[in-house]
Amino acid sequence: MRRIGQALLAVSLFAGCGGTEIDPSSESIEQRQSSLTQTNVDVAPECQGILGFVNTASFQTLDVYLPSDVATNLVTRRAAAPFVSLADISSVRLVGPTRLEQLASGARNEGFIGSSCIGILDGLAVSTDDAAAIVSLVNTISDSELHDVLPDAWNGASNLLNLRPFTSVQAISNVAGIGDVALRNIRNAATLSRPLEALIDAVNAVPQNGLYGANMARHFDWWEVVTTRGTYRVGRLECFGLEPSSVPYGATVRPNLADAAEVRAEIVDTLSAANQNNQISSSVISAGLANLDALTAGRSFKGCYFSYADDPWSGNNVAIFVDTVNGFSVMTETYWSE
């Protein structure tokens, strides 16, 4: 039996899920993961002290790190409502990137943040864990996925590909074409699907029984997967939402995009195929599916379904989904062998 087709062997991180209806995540898991599924959050949990500093430091303390008029504006504004984000702070008159950096410096010097918070880069307060994930993703991501993650920063994406490998998130932030929106998109791609990726790893670790199995992926080159399928036979190839120039040869094109329900159904079916003997922890399943739901709610997806075989005695069925706006992607595969 072939565990996975040649085109999928190059895939590094596997994502997706499937199975029968699963109990929803427990409250404690949802609370732990809530900040990881909010794409607009601009302060990592390890950097929340920056907000604490701005909201509680006296005028005299703020005045040490900022011009007096800026400190006055912050104190006046927070009297009406506490600051909840860097964007909120930046809405105050005279506060820009330089003032945010000064606030981060003040928060560090006054003990509000520690070494687990790197600081503020392109409007994001980044933790050391997030920074490591961002560097790892940028150094390994495929061309096609990176351009899907950065649909409005193609020059920035090309520059990243040409200049990698990187050793720091600061170096990535400094690349021409990478600004606030681009860095946030990269951060989201690198960090927001951790519970889902844990489920993916669990699915791919399930021992195979020699007759059938399943795999999933979170980061992959969808063009390579679709166009290098099947050394023996290619069956169904149906795509949707692709640019005409990106439609693989011989594919049929359906008019409607996929939605969150379609993505979830495919993942749940794949999870069911992989987890027939209940080897995967229910808490991992619950957290992974809750994370998936948070990331796909209200979204639209391009992608393809296809089947192929590498010999007369096996078959593979693959589904690929890519968010049309932010590039979030998942792939599922089920296979059989005589």
Rank of each mutant, 00 (worst) to 15 (best):
Y212P: 00
Y212C: 09
Y212I: 08
Y212T: 04
Y212A: 08
A214C: 04
A214F: 04
A214L: 06
A214D: 04
N215T: 13
N215D: 14
N215Y: 15
N215K: 13
N215C: 13
M216P: 05
M216E: 03
M216Q: 07
M216N: 05
M216L: 11
A217I: 01
A217M: 07
R218Q: 09
R218K: 13
R218W: 10
R218L: 13
R218E: 10
H219A: 13
H219N: 09
H219D: 08
H219C: 07
H219R: 14
F220A: 06
F220Y: 09
F220G: 02
F220I: 01
F220T: 05
F220C: 05
D221M: 09
D221F: 10
D221G: 08
D221L: 10
D221P: 03
D221H: 09
D221W: 09
W222T: 02
W222K: 06
W222S: 06
W223P: 00
W223D: 01
W223V: 04
W223N: 08
W223I: 04
E224F: 15
E224Y: 15
E224N: 15
E224G: 13
V225W: 12
V225M: 12
V225Q: 10
V225R: 08
V225F: 11
V226M: 00
T227W: 01
T227I: 02
T227A: 00
T227F: 05
T227N: 06
T227D: 06
T228N: 05
T228M: 07
R229I: 06
R229M: 11
R229L: 08
R229H: 11
R229W: 11
G230C: 11
G230I: 05
G230Q: 08
G230N: 13
T231R: 15
Y232L: 12
Y232R: 10
Y232Q: 04
R233G: 12
R233L: 14
R233F: 14
V234Q: 12
V234T: 11
V234K: 14
V234Y: 14
V234W: 13
V234R: 13
G235I: 07
G235Y: 06
G235Q: 03
G235H: 06
G235P: 01
R236L: 11
R236C: 10
R236K: 07
R236D: 04
R236S: 05
L237R: 00
E238A: 12
E238H: 14
E238M: 13
E238D: 07
C239A: 10
C239E: 02
C239L: 07
C239K: 08
F240K: 04
F240S: 03
F240G: 02
G241T: 05
G241C: 13
G241Y: 14
L242C: 06
L242K: 06
L242R: 07
L242F: 11
L242M: 09
L242D: 02
